[in-house]
Nucleic acid binder design. Sequence first.
DNA 1: CTGAAAGCGCTAACAT
DNA 2: ATGTTAGCGCTTTCAG
Lengths: 331, 331
Amino acid sequence: MAKINEVAAAAGVSIGTVSKFINKTKRFSPDVERRIAEAIERLGYESNPLARSMATGQTGAVGVVIQDILNPYFTAMVKGVNRIAQRNDFVVLIVDADENRKGERPALTKLSRRVDGLILNTSMPDDDLRWTASLGKPVVAVGSAPRDGLLTLHSDPVRAGEMLGQHLLMEKYQRFAYISLPNARGDDERRAGAEQVLARAGLPLRTFSVPRATVADGERVCASVMLSAEPPDAVICYNDMIAAGFIKEAERLGISIPHDVAVCGFDNLELGKLTSPTLTSIDTETERAGEVAMTTLLDALAGKSPDPHTMLEARLVVRESTVRPRDARRR
Amino acid sequence: MAKINEVAAAAGVSIGTVSKFINKTKRFSPDVERRIAEAIERLGYESNPLARSMATGQTGAVGVVIQDILNPYFTAMVKGVNRIAQRNDFVVLIVDADENRKGERPALTKLSRRVDGLILNTSMPDDDLRWTASLGKPVVAVGSAPRDGLLTLHSDPVRAGEMLGQHLLMEKYQRFAYISLPNARGDDERRAGAEQVLARAGLPLRTFSVPRATVADGERVCASVMLSAEPPDAVICYNDMIAAGFIKEAERLGISIPHDVAVCGFDNLELGKLTSPTLTSIDTETERAGEVAMTTLLDALAGKSPDPHTMLEARLVVRESTVRPRDARRR
DNA sequence: CTGAAAGCGCTAACAT
DNA sequence: ATGTTAGCGCTTTCAG
């Protein structure tokens, strides 16, 4: 691979001139420019990004940390990030937190040395999150409440929980359960939102929990929730993965949705359109969130001081899993 | 952030000594080692990976190019790659080919400068694929037939098509259709495999096609396939995304699966367990493929010359979408 | 067993 | 308008 000095030699100019030409940081006489361009072309020269980073202190890379790449919620965000990144000639470095052996901090420290900024979408203890500000690079925390020193981007999870609760009340459900993913980001808030709305109607919310946000865990929890003395007639799941598993297992158990029980989740994943019945959920425009996160980061890197805290509006997406046919509801 | 010279100064040794100590490339007297360790600890020193790369020519990064990060097939592979990468202190750089504006070659050239090796899982013209060998870095092509100059990893797509065809024949289906994704990797082979098996039974295979491998496209094609003069009673889709969409739309159209038509796909995505009926598919152990790809790459980087061409066994996973209840089949 | 110094390829401030 | 040169932070050969 040709180096800048070879190009300079071939074009009969100095190495500095080539550098300036490449970075468009200075113009030269048409003759010189032509010679350089021609040399670059002929040698197939491409500037070495590492050497460039070394000299400029900028990497042209961003780090994205997500909880689990198998969860479409996270990949949707990555899609958005990727789109904006590639458009701006940035490269994205991805870390799957679930696969990370050695705690968050060491991993983040290592990662941060290789990138200009970070986008975080994980359930990370509050302490760790706050600590990231000390990395000396801009970080966008997706799904986190506003916080000094960080750029954040989120949609109100309490509000989302309320929407689901309110919707279920309007559909005349009576006995509510919440499937929690303890310690996950937004878990408490989603639950609290639903709980508040139900409490206002004088109705309690029972909580169950699963260890991971997977379809398999949703399946596993279904029987223990539904085959009990007083099963709920409406269950709100921490996310759509769990909800989808729950629905599938209910089908196997001969439990009819939404006739026997309503089921809903959060994130509005595409798989919610594939289940039978289709899944009611909360849409948070995840892909767009990724775009916004990356745009915000780029602005910060460009010294534009963007809005530090962006709030995205959540939307209730009602599908079959929570809506009883008219006559059934009347009983 | 502390630099190596500060550590050296603090420990009262030379900068070279610190470097050797860090890289365990040489041992020193207990006293010196203690002093260095202590200085590193106290200053919170971490070696700058960029400078290190500059000096060694190694980046500790791999590039992964996938077709579409929204397709779980690709993310499953990335999961596997990520696992092995993180275990070996490698970082992964991801590129979504669908979001890539400027052709494959420029994008790959740029990417390759930042990494030690590449893992490719895209549908790329054969020419381009062959060309990647000239990048001067090891590349693992997942899902590609063996090819000189490249490391490859794939499971026989013709065989996979055969399995599905044979299975459908055994279930006594008669009128077959294939939903193709033209130019996609393995499309021709999957189709050919099925076609051969059916031809042996004297049965033809009609081909339809979709522009993208998405659920939405599967939904869209369903009506035009099924609401025609002589609709098929068994359809093989290029992948599970298309198949899942097809199934969902069939449900809406009042077409019963597998009673009216059998549907199957490739990749054995998790969403195939969520549809109703559940989806018959071909499992290619995608996540493991990612692990193997990364392991192979690491071996190549370590100069171990691994098996250049690995073949993974595909497996037929029969679910509800292709199996008629006994009595229905007897008619 | 430890130190000095020459690079890795490029940028940017300073000369000319 | 173009050239010179001192770094960027680290590794590694070669001396001592």
